[in-house]
Amino acid sequence: MTMEQKASNKKKVKVIKIDLDKCNGCRACEVICSAFHANPKYSSNNPARSRIRVYFDPLKNKYVPVYAGEYTPAECMGRDKYIINGKEYDECGFCRASCPSRDLFKEPDSGLPLKCDMCEDDPPQEEPLCVKWCLVDALTYEEREEEGEEEVKPEDVEIGLNALVDKYGLDKVVDTVARMTQKD
């Protein structure tokens, strides 16, 4: 076994630590996330497109930054509600899914799902930009290596197409793509 092959058995685990007590509710994370993911990069920003959202309610002192996780075509069988130190958080308040039960983590125009990609970039960023822009250290970044295969990550386009397939059926999506291709 060569060294290269051995290395490929390690996978990099990227962790953003979220300290709810340190969050100041400034939403800089939403600003820079949506700017970074604009096309061309930084050409616009719009928190409604951000892959991180800060849910906060100062009058109840609740501050929860949440990252967009997996897209899911179906709702869970039930909902959850956390109560921490006597404070009741929103239904599914800590869930990261882009899910039919809510508007969260969907492109405002198309409704297509959004997912945090840890600001993958070429050359790579030192840390996700939400972390970089969080000067109060509510968000901090850690990397570690674990045994196991590196997962093949679906691209944004694939995630989006999956959502369309779930909504309209594969045939309809294929037909539409075929028709659009012919037009060109």
């Binding site: 700017a35 604009a38 061309p40 616009s44 920003n45 719009n46 409604a48 497109r49």
Partner: peptide
């Protein structure tokens, strides 16, 4: 509001923002 605010010269602008931070 859920619309975009646009920037004329994005890379340059974000560099200045990073300098401020």
């Amino acid at each position: 509001g859920k619309r975009d605010v646009n920037i004329a010269r994005p890379a340059e602008f974000i560099k200045y923002c990073n300098d401020i931070l």
